[in-house]
């Protein structure tokens, strides 16, 4: 799999020297077979050579990454792709309002009549030199994740009061993702932000979206590929101009809708459930529908969209 990733990086035009270093990193640091299942096998690939180079260089230098971008820009795809390229086991940790140190590091549990610690994902990741993906890190309260400060900075330790203090495995990296502007998200405080290298990810370009669709739907006709790409760009523009919220700007939704079309659902209905209905505001749905109607006919036949 990782070879596939390296080939993909080559295709993307990433600097040869970087790819060689990634390969060296991977070859020098094997993964025990019982953790092999944790190495991601990405279904989607991240397109964007600049971002790839920034991310790879930072990780090679032992830094943690914070991927910041609006919705539907591929933060998690990139995080997963990075773990795959480096061939490391990964732990996905979704942050939420009630995330606290026990859910990250570990919690007390009762075992054979004794209170013992059950390790949390951060602990596991640290011990096994994995890649920890801290998803939507700004959903959690800053105070409750202050426990991570020592883990993420130069100290690279986890100190669990009453139990032990461990030092992170040298291969451990954390990749946090954050969306600025979702309801419920908050500012990341400076203390936490300073422990990451921050990559601002651009919204997906037409060319990259085309590549993505081509890979996902090899049988999609060129004419419709253009229209779906154009549709996403139109929505993106509408969102950037604050005419609609980002609810309907949903790349996952678009791809799922095309899958439904492939299964035979009429395009109008597929886009309605994949994109339009993501918004719960009547007027916003009207606006999104207008954008769709200016791109996709209501009921094209399946063979008009796909070659087989």
């Amino acid at each position: 799999m990782s070879d596939d990733m390296l080939n993909f990086l080559k295709e993307e035009g990433i600097r040869e020297s970087l790819i060689r270093e990634v390969a060296r990193f991977r070859d020098a640091n094997g993964v025990s077979p019982d953790l092999d299942y944790r190495i991601p096998r990405p279904r989607f690939l991240y397109y964007g050579a600049d971002i790839w180079e920034q991310a790879i260089t930072a990780l090679l230098c032992g830094e943690n990454l914070l991927l910041v971008s609006p919705k539907a820009t591929g933060k998690n795809v990139l995080a997963e792709n990075l773990a795959a390229a480096f061939g490391r086991p990964s732990w996905d940790i979704s942050f939420h309002i009630n995330t606290d140190s026990s859910s990250l590091i570990g919690t007390d549990t009762f075992e054979n009549g004794r209170v013992v610690q059950r390790h949390g994902p951060i602990y596991e990741c640290a011990v096994h030199g994995g890649f920890g993906v801290l998803d939507e890190i700004n959903m959690a309260k800053n105070e409750s994740i202050a426990i991570l400060h020592a883990t993420l900075d130069f100290r690279r330790i986890i100190d669990i009061p009453g139990y032990s203090k461990i030092t992170l495995d040298g291969l451990t990296r954390f990749i946090a993702t954050m969306n600025y502007g979702y309801a419920g998200t908050r500012e990341l405080n400076e203390a936490l932000a300073s422990r990451f290298m921050v990559i601002r990810m651009p919204t997906i370009s037409s060319a990259n979206l085309r590549k993505l669709l081509k890979r996902e739907f090899p049988n999609l006709r060129e004419k419709y590929m253009e229209q779906f790409t154009g549709l996403f760009q139109d929505l993106q523009k509408k969102c950037e101009n604050s005419e609609i919220s980002s609810k309907s700007l949903d790349l996952r939704g678009l791809i799922s809708a095309i899958h439904l079309m492939e299964k035979g659902l009429p395009a109008g209905a597929a886009l309605e459930i994949g994109i339009t209905n993501k918004s719960f505001d009547d007027f916003e749905r009207d606006l999104v529908e207008d954008v769709i109607r200016l791109r996709i006919p209501q009921a094209p036949r399946r063979e008009e969209i796909f070659t087989d």
Partner: peptide, 18 residues
């Protein structure tokens, strides 16, 4: 006013300029 806003949105979309 909603329809006016809708009309403007379609125009902006087609003009690719908000």
């Amino acid at each position: 006013s909603q329809e006016k806003q809708r009309a403007l949105n379609i125009i902006w979309n087609a003009a690719a300029d908000y």
